[in-house]
Nucleic acid binder design. Structure first.
Length: 494
RNA sequence: GACAAGGUGGCUGAAUGGUUAAAGUAACAGUCUGCAAAACUGUUUUUUAUGAGUUCGAAUCUCAUCCUUGUCUCCA
């Protein structure tokens, strides 16, 4: 008996614009594909939010007992910088600027990507395929689309015929655009394009002589178009129809729209049952942008070495901050917001620690079973992590009350409470205890600070408050905060 | 200019027709403390961008206006 047989998830499907009861194609199994990063620069914090949302989804589906195959690709063949025929792919361009091999660019930023995700405690996907590793599949796909009459070759390049496709299919089914509107809004570039229509998109591009990344194909030495890789890799590993396709909101059009079209054109069926789109991350109320300087990368946010935030924040605090908003909402990253989350996160973690020393009674003054189901209800409602966290804080208040003997809990309920908290806080939200998050040289530090705490205690007993305050204040000045509690003094660093 | 998603207390952010609009933070008070901080407890703040409409009833539906973000276009 798996949990998913009792817990029914509703997912907001971008395709229909409604929340729908989730039903996998094969009972007990889920295929999920998420568009991964283009590795031509350090991973963008907005990308981290998107992938974190799907990491949470992956974690929850697994927790429910589903066998999940989670595929997240690495785009290492580069998107075209623009869609004109003279387009240059992002990776090649970056390689030229840095005067190194394109695959060095790919290697460098793939490593960076994995490092950052590791810091934020991401689970690795089941498969992480690369675009360059699936050129053959992409060529096969193009041939099929040509055979089916939905693509044409011009001068060694192959384009998808959007107008032809739209006669029998709905180009715009996902993005809710109408082809007529697109035509109306497109001003053709005179004589610059081999395309029959400006709305057509490239499936295969003939490489210019200077283009380094190139592969042989029936049409020319060249490289695949930027929408094709996801179609090739998702269906290769998940089947021609699969359950969930995720990605950032910015990919909805044209990228995901084109994926649907390619699948329909090649195989005559829609590939995906549930489309999920994570919303954007803003910084201080505005879009992040290199050109305006309104940008912060993950490493800077963690270290505090930036001009935007007052300090660095731990990975779990940032994760907690992101989980406090729904994945479908725009989230505004601010220093005040992070500070608030940090305090809340610490409060939650204190309560989790207190669970170990709680005294049990013959009855419980709080309905743990009902509370537990409320946590599931929150997650089942389109992965509503903010509501889940609100529920967690409700139980934090009760934990504190039990600690101060204003409330009671039975041994059985305490066991259930511990298991449930651990499940939701660590397994599903993916948070880590503060001590596990910054485990660098803490032993020596702890020894030294505990010595100072002992000296201060002695001074306080002797009512030498000048000395005790000096110890406290000077530790505070270097970022070590002493916390006097009923049972002695502890410390925390920031 | 077109399309899409949004605009909720000081800040972050839930709730999409139905009693007192979650939760965190902040502020204030109390407990603790030599004092402070931390911690814990309690209290306070919004009437849901603006205006009009539908409804017995709207943050939630409709229309208009303003603003934000994304994509396309333009520009470059």
């Amino acid at each position: 008996m798996q949990l998913y047989q009792n817990q029914h998830i509703n997912i907001y499907n971008s395709l229909t614009g409604k929340k729908e009861t989730f039903k996998p194609i094969n009972s007990g199994y889920i295929g999920m594909y998420v568009c991964g990063p283009t590795v031509y620069s350090n991973v963008h914090l907005g990308n981290v939010r998107t992938f974190m949302s799907f990491d949470m989804v992956f974690r929850y589906l697994k927790h429910l007992g589903y066998k999940v195959r989670y595929v997240r690709n690495i785009t290492d063949a580069g998107h075209l910088e623009n869609d004109a025929d003279v387009g240059e792919d992002k990776i090649t361009k970056k390689a030229r600027l840095e005067e190194i091999e394109p695959m060095e660019i790919v290697q460098r930023y793939t490593v960076d990507f994995h490092n950052v995700l590791d810091k934020f405690n991401f689970l690795p996907p089941s498969i992480e395929p690369t675009a360059t590793g699936h050129i053959i599949e992409q060529i096969e796909l193009i041939s099929k689309i040509i055979d089916n009459g939905f693509a044409y070759e011009v001068n060694g390049s192959v384009y998808f015929d959007v107008h032809k496709y739209n006669e029998t299919n709905d180009y715009g089914i996902l993005s809710k655009r109408k082809l007529e509107d697109l035509i109306h809004n497109t001003r053709a570039l005179d004589g610059q394009s081999d395309k029959r229509n400006p709305q057509d998109f490239a499936l295969w591009k003939k490489a210019e002589p200077t283009h380094i990344m190139r592969w042989p194909s029936p049409w020319s030495d060249g490289f695949p178009g930027w929408h094709l890789e996801c179609t090739a890799m998702s269906t290769k590993y998940l089947g021609e129809q699969f359950d969930i396709h995720g990605g950032g909101m910015d990919l909805k059009f044209p990228h995901h729209e084109c994926e649907i079209a390619q699948n329909q054109a090649a195989k005559g069926q829609a590939p995906v049952n549930y489309w999920m789109h994570a919303n954007m991350l803003e910084l201080n109320g505005a879009r992040m942008s290199k050109s305006t300087g309104n940008i912060i990368n993950p490493a800077e946010l963690l270290s505090g070495k930036n001009d935007i935030m007052s300090k660095g924040y731990s990975p779990s605090v940032i994760r907690f901050f992101m989980m406090q908003s729904a994945y479908r909402s725009v989230l505004d990253l601010t220093d005040a917001g992070l500070l608030a989350s940090e305090k809340g996160f610490n409060r939650l973690m204190n309560a989790v620690d207190d669970l170990e020393s709680l005294k049990t009674s013959n009855n419980s003054s709080f309905d743990i079973k009902k509370w537990k189901q409320n946590c599931y209800n929150a997650m089942n409602d389109d992965f509503n992590t903010p509501i889940l966290i609100a529920n967690l804080f409700e139980v934090v208040t009760h934990i504190n009350a039990i600690k101060e003997t204003r409330a009671t809990i039975t041994a059985d309920d305490l066991k259930l409470l511990k298991e449930t908290i651990s499940t939701f806080v660590f397994d599903i939200l993916g948070l880590k205890k503060t001590s596990e998050d910054n485990a660098s040289g803490t032993d020596k530090l702890t020894g030294a600070v505990e010595l100072l705490i002992a000296l201060r205690k002695e001074a306080r007993v002797n009512k030498d408050f000048a000395l005790s305050d000096k110890i406290r204040d000077e530790l505070a000045a270097v970022g070590i905060q002493l916390n006097d509690g009923r049972d002695g003094t502890t410390f925390s660093t920031n």
